[in-house]
Computed example of a mutant assay.
Amino acid sequence: MKQVLAIRHVAFEDLGTFEAEFAAAGYWVKYVEAPTDDLQRLDICAPDVVVILGGPIGAYEDDRYPFLRHELALIERRLKADRALLGICLGAQLIARVSGARVYPGAYKEIGWGDVSLTEAGAKSVLAPLSAKLPVLHWHGDSFDLPQDAQRLASTALYPNQAFSIGPRVLGLQFHLEASARTLESWLVGHAVELAHAGIDIQSLRRDAPDSSSYSREILRTWLDLPATLESCS
């Protein structure tokens, strides 16, 4: 059975709707808790897919959160092997940092459901369904420069680098395709302090949540169908 390794930073920011799609595609999901598990002993080579999930810390805060240094080393090994790697929000920022790009606090928080503008490359990529202006969940306050070898796939007015790819099997998403109305309540509780500080209306977040996340699962399914790279990884 194929395996997906999901590196998680907070319990409620999990694979969300992606988990069922991985299962339908024949993948066994294993979670690793980045703050508490021994990342130095983790086999980053064996899994068919690695997903680096989101979290409420900065990709540049390894002085405060030393486990990030080990996580960055894992990502570097995975990138060098050119094996399937998906980064979501913090995960995308960590991939960008490992790839030599600057990650830094954004001028504004972007929290809420909204669309993204696809680039020409993005419209031809796995993100093509989003050209219909379908809603995704934005929940970030940090930004990053585009890695040198990456293709920009999507933007918003506040954050120009919303999605990027590095080759066919590395995908970074600043937004949360995996989130849905069903999983949103955990986010509202887990990020209650941040929402209150930012003056975000949680009723609006509930009201604007899309009824269906079928397009997000379609995007993941298309990405999983891309040819796999099986380079050595050590």
Rank of each mutant, 00 (worst) to 15 (best):
Val136Trp: 04
Asp211Tyr: 11
Gly172Trp: 00
Trp223Ile: 00
Asp149Gly: 14
Arg64Leu: 13
Val116Asp: 14
Ala34Phe: 06
Ala24Leu: 06
Ser186Arg: 13
Phe164Met: 09
Leu72Thr: 08
Ile111Asp: 10
Ser214Trp: 09
Arg69Asn: 10
Val126His: 07
Pro147Ile: 14
Leu72Asn: 09
Lys30Tyr: 02
Asp48Met: 06
Arg169Gly: 08
Val49Ala: 07
Asn161Leu: 13
Leu118Val: 07
Glu13Leu: 03
Ser165Gln: 11
Ala23Arg: 13
Glu178Ile: 04
Ala11Val: 08
Ala34His: 05
Pro160Ala: 13
Ser117Gln: 15
Arg169Ala: 09
Glu13Phe: 00
Ala121Lys: 14
Arg78Ser: 02
Ala46Gln: 14
Ala25Thr: 01
Thr156Gln: 11
Thr17Arg: 08
Glu194Pro: 08
His176Cys: 01
Arg152Asp: 14
Asp208Ser: 12
Glu19Leu: 03
Ser125Cys: 13
Ala59Cys: 09
Thr17Met: 03
Ile88Gly: 00
Gly55Glu: 10
Gln40Asp: 14
Ala96Gln: 05
Glu33Val: 01
Gly141Trp: 09
Gly141Cys: 05
Arg77Ala: 05
Val4Ile: 12
Ile44Lys: 01
Glu13Cys: 02
Leu224Pro: 02
Glu194Ile: 13
Val103Pro: 12
Lys124Phe: 14
Gly141Phe: 05
Pro227Tyr: 00
Leu195Asn: 08
Ser131Ala: 15
Ala59Glu: 06
Val32Ile: 08
Ala154Phe: 09
Ser212Val: 09
Val10His: 12
Ile57Met: 12
Ser125His: 14
Ala196Trp: 07
Gly122Glu: 10
Thr17Ser: 07
Ala163Trp: 05
Ser214Gln: 12
